[in-house]
Amino acid sequence: MKKLIFILSLTFLFSCSKPEDNQPSISNVVVESVTPTYGYAGDEITFNMSENLPSNSNVSIFYGTEKAIINSVSDRKVKFTLSAINGLPEMSLNGKEVINTHTFSYLSKFIECSGCKEKVYPYNDSNDIISYIADTFEINNTLYLIRVTKDSKQNYKTYLINTDINFNIIKETLLFNEKPLSKAIVENNTIVLNIPNTVFSFDLNGNKIWVYTLSSISQQSSDNSILKYNSYYYVIKSNINDAVNNLHIEIAKIDHNGKYISSIFIPNPSSTYGQWANSIVNINNKIVVFTSFCCGTNNGGHVVIDINDKILKNVMGLINVRDSDPFIEGNSVYYGNYANINNTQLIKITLDANNDFKTDWIKDKLLGGIVV
């Protein structure tokens, strides 16, 4: 089945205000922290306040028209249950709005697994997000989340979270001090992830199995930069064709032990524009690399590689799959075009027998987002 990714990330802002005369006296109260910093509908969240709140304090939290369930107000803690999100959050204390800057990520992604609840999580790397879930998978009724955090200096950390089928956290393990450039490749109880210039393999407890380090001159920034194909891993080692700096798109081939086998070098089909790789995918048992060109053109391109690592097609054309995580079904590719924020598009293209892509249809004016 297809996964629906829906991004929701909320920032709580609370302001201080003077209490009404007939309400308990609370001065300069703020929310010092939120525990946990991410959660699902139905989870209990705790606001840790800067001052004790009288037990008869009138606390309410709304998400648009949806009201959160206040479970308890005790000392410095306000505990409540997340309800369905329908708008921005507003919290009031004794009838007055209370403001403070604390970020909470509302988690939301449909996960398909036997016997588990459907949950949702965000994938968002904007500057105001300090934590997000980049991927999820299930093995033997244990759910695994790849969680990424970011501090104010844009320093990243990536964690492996083990949960039960009800999303109770069993274990959280730091994998590396970077953000991943790929979805997790999960096979035989191992996890393979790519960060800039390095590929890691871990077991399901987060223990490192092997590491493949790309050369220091590599220019790797694609968000979907590794593919498992024909028992090997294919990694976008360098994603830029740059004649001035003698760079080229290079796909490195490594085995299941992280040993380098060979490389595929992709020439630039244009003598005018620079070229870079956006993503690498498997379409109808062929490796396909989607590319874009710079500067002064909106054209894109694609490279088709066969099972023997031979380049069958390398063209520049009107189809530009900039989406780093396109959805693949048979010979067809579904991807989003977000270039015009007033007209988000969903596009379907199909790879034909000549290894060319043809546009099947374009759905315009999807202002509410794209659902595949």
Rank of each mutant, 00 (worst) to 15 (best):
I328V: 12
Q345K: 15
N239P: 07
D352P: 08
G258I: 09
D360P: 03
S238G: 12
H256I: 13
M316K: 14
L366Q: 15
I251S: 00
Q275A: 06
A353D: 15
S263Y: 08
K310Y: 08
L346C: 07
N241E: 12
D306I: 13
L346N: 04
K365L: 13
L247D: 11
S279V: 11
H256W: 06
N246R: 08
S292A: 12
L366P: 07
N337D: 15
S263I: 07
Y260P: 03
N284A: 15
I307E: 13
S263F: 10
P326S: 13
G368Y: 10
E250S: 10
I319N: 03
I347L: 08
A353T: 15
K237N: 09
L318N: 11
M316P: 07
K365N: 15
N354P: 02
N268R: 03
L312F: 03
D242T: 00
D364W: 03
G317Q: 14
G336E: 13
I287F: 04
I370C: 04
W361Y: 14
E329M: 12
L366S: 09
L318Q: 12
D255R: 07
N342L: 12
T272G: 12
T291A: 05
K365W: 07
H302T: 06
T344S: 01
N337C: 06
K237V: 03
E250L: 12
E329W: 07
N343K: 01
S263N: 14
I283G: 00
K310H: 12
F265H: 14
G300D: 05
F357K: 08
I266R: 03
T291E: 03
H248D: 14
Y273H: 14
D364R: 07
H248C: 14
I240Q: 00
K253M: 11
V304Y: 04
S238R: 05
N343G: 04
N282S: 15
N299Y: 07
S238N: 15
N268C: 09
S262A: 11
N337S: 08
N320W: 02
Q275K: 11
N343F: 00
V321P: 09
N284D: 15
G368L: 09
H248F: 13
I370D: 00
L318W: 10
G300N: 05
C294Q: 14
A277M: 04
V244C: 05
V288A: 04
I347A: 03
T272F: 15
